[in-house]
Measured scan of single mutants.
Amino acid sequence: SEHYTFDGEEQAIRFMRDMEAKNLKYELQIHNGKYIIQVD
């Protein structure tokens, strides 16, 4: 699995939509205002 970190919500949402379009599962965590997305 890989981790991707985003500072902004818009970037994170765009990335998650992209993952959904590719049928990839992901998990979102928010730490200290950063959006951390783990992709299986």
Rank of each mutant, 00 (worst) to 15 (best):
L24G: 04
A21Q: 10
Q29L: 13
I36D: 04
E9Y: 14
Y35D: 00
K22S: 07
Y4H: 09
A21N: 09
Q11L: 09
K34G: 03
D7L: 08
Y26Q: 00
N23E: 07
G8Y: 14
M19S: 02
A21D: 09
Y4G: 01
Q38F: 15
I13M: 11
K34H: 11
Y26D: 01
Q38G: 05
R17V: 08
F15M: 06
R17W: 07
L24C: 08
F15I: 04
K22M: 11
D40K: 14
K34R: 09
F6A: 01
D7C: 13
V39T: 05
D7K: 04
E2A: 12
L28R: 00
H31V: 15
L24Y: 08
F15R: 02
Y35C: 02
D40R: 13
V39W: 05
E20P: 01
G8P: 00
D18F: 11
Q29I: 14
R14T: 06
Q11A: 13
A12T: 03
R17F: 06
Q38I: 15
K25W: 09
A21R: 10
Q11I: 06
K25A: 09
Q11D: 15
F6Y: 03
K25P: 09
A12D: 01
F6H: 00
H3E: 12
L28A: 04
G8C: 15
H3I: 15
D7Q: 05
D18G: 05
E27R: 12
Q38M: 14
L28I: 10
H31G: 04
I37D: 00
L24E: 04
D18I: 11
F15L: 05
E10H: 04
Q11F: 06
G33W: 01
V39C: 03
A21F: 08
I30P: 01
E9P: 12
D18N: 07
K25R: 11
Q38A: 11
Q29F: 14
L28H: 02
Q38S: 14
E9M: 12
L28P: 00
E2P: 11
M19N: 03
E2Q: 13
E20K: 06
E2C: 15
Q11R: 05
L28F: 10
S1R: 13
D18V: 08
F15T: 03
N23M: 07
E10Q: 08
A21Y: 08
D40Y: 15
D40A: 13
Q11M: 10
K34W: 09
V39L: 10
Y4E: 02
N32G: 08
I37P: 00
N32M: 08
G33T: 02
I36M: 07
H3S: 12
M19D: 01
I36H: 11
N23C: 14
G8W: 12
K34Y: 09
T5D: 05
G33P: 00
F15P: 01
D40T: 14
H31L: 13
T5M: 12
E27L: 11
F6V: 02
A12H: 01
H3F: 15
S1T: 12
A12I: 02
E10P: 04
M16K: 01
T5F: 11
K22H: 10
H3N: 10
V39M: 08
I13R: 11
E20W: 05
I13L: 13
D40E: 13
N23F: 06
E20D: 13
K25Q: 09
Q11E: 15
M16E: 02
Y4P: 03
I13T: 09
